[in-house]
Each structure stands twice: as C-alpha cells, then as structure tokens.
C-alpha cells in the first residue's frame, strides 16, 4: 500500500473523522504539543549551552545533563503521542508533506544525539566531572540548538503546505 493510499484509508476511519468533527480535541492536543515543545526547548537550551561553554560553566556538564535528560524524555514521549493524534486527524496534510518528513528526520536525529551520544558523557563522568567538554562537543551544542529551532519552523510550516 502506498503512503497516499494509507493516508486516504486513515482519513476515512471513524477515529480520524471523530478527531476532526469534535472541535475541541485538536486545539487542546496542539496546546499539549506546544507545552511539551517548551519543556524540550528549555531543557535542551540549558543543556546544550552548558556543552557550548556559555551557561552554568561552574557546574559539571554531566550534572546538568543528568538533571534535564528525564524531562526531555518525558516531553518527547508526550510530543510523539500528541503528534500521532494530529497525524491520524489530518493524514493528507502530514504524510504527503515533505516538510513533515523533514521534521521527522530532524526530530529523530536530535533525539538520538540527546539520548545516546550525550548520554555517553554520563557513563564516563568520573573523568569529565568538573572539566570543560571538548571542542567537538561545544560545536555540537550549537548545532543542536539550531536543529531544535529548525524543527519548530518545520512544525509551523506543515500547516501551510
């Protein structure tokens, strides 16, 4: 089955129809989606700026990451679930949309870097404790902030394409 055929099938399901017809569901789901975006952005901003050597440089990078990683995990799960509901409600607007898939790729990449690569810092924090992260980690910090910004732009532009 092609993606567009799947989208048409999904659109015709009673769940999808219900989500579109009960007018208060989508605005409230989107509100939770934005609240979760704010949690990710707030946590990522502090964590990545710490890696970039801008913020909280007197605190070990591993401590800062350890503090905000669970928040990011929970928020990412909320984003996934609320996002899934939005896709079910409007499959044509999302599944057949290049910007939507660009956003998904960026989210997957950013989440993977946050949950795996950054987490490896926690494993050897006996060595890095109190020290400044290496230069590569600094550059990655700035790149991650840019990626999260790009994700927000993609998200808003999905509604206009």
């Amino acid at each position: 089955m092609s993606i567009s055929a799947f989208g048409e099938w999904l659109y015709a399901t009673s769940v999808s129809t219900e989500l579109r017809e009960v007018t208060w569901i989508i605005p409230n789901i989107q509100t939770f989606h934005i609240l979760a975006i704010a949690v990710v952005i707030g946590s990522a901003l502090v964590t990545e700026l710490r890696f970039a050597g801008v913020l909280a440089t007197d605190r070990p990078a591993a401590d800062v990451l350890r503090r905000y990683l669970p928040w990011m995990k929970v928020a990412l799960i909320v984003l996934l679930l609320t996002g899934l509901i939005l896709v079910v409600a409007e499959p044509a607007r999302t599944l057949g949309n290049t910007i939507f898939w660009t956003k998904m790729a960026l989210v997957a990449g950013a989440s993977l870097v946050t949950l795996k690569a950054r987490k490896s810092i926690l494993q050897n924090d006996g060595v890095t404790e109190g020290e400044n992260p290496p230069e590569a980690s600094k550059a990655l910090g700035w790149l991650m902030i840019l990626i999260w910004c790009a994700i927000i732009f993609c998200g808003r532009f999905i509604a206009y394409t």
């Binding site: 934005i34 609240l35 975006i37 704010a38 949690v39 990710v40 952005i41 707030g42 946590s43 901003l45 502090v46 910004c149 927000i152 732009f153 998200g155 808003r156 532009f157």
Partner: peptide, 16 residues
C-alpha cells in the same frame, strides 16, 4: 514560527 520558538524559550526557562 518565531512566536512559537520565543514562547518555548520563555515558558521553558520560566518552568525551570
């Protein structure tokens, strides 16, 4: 988009 980015930073930092 700029509004959402800004409010995410406002609410994200205020939340902490």
């Amino acid at each position: 988009s700029l509004h959402v980015l800004g409010l995410a930073i406002v609410f994200g930092t205020i939340l902490i």
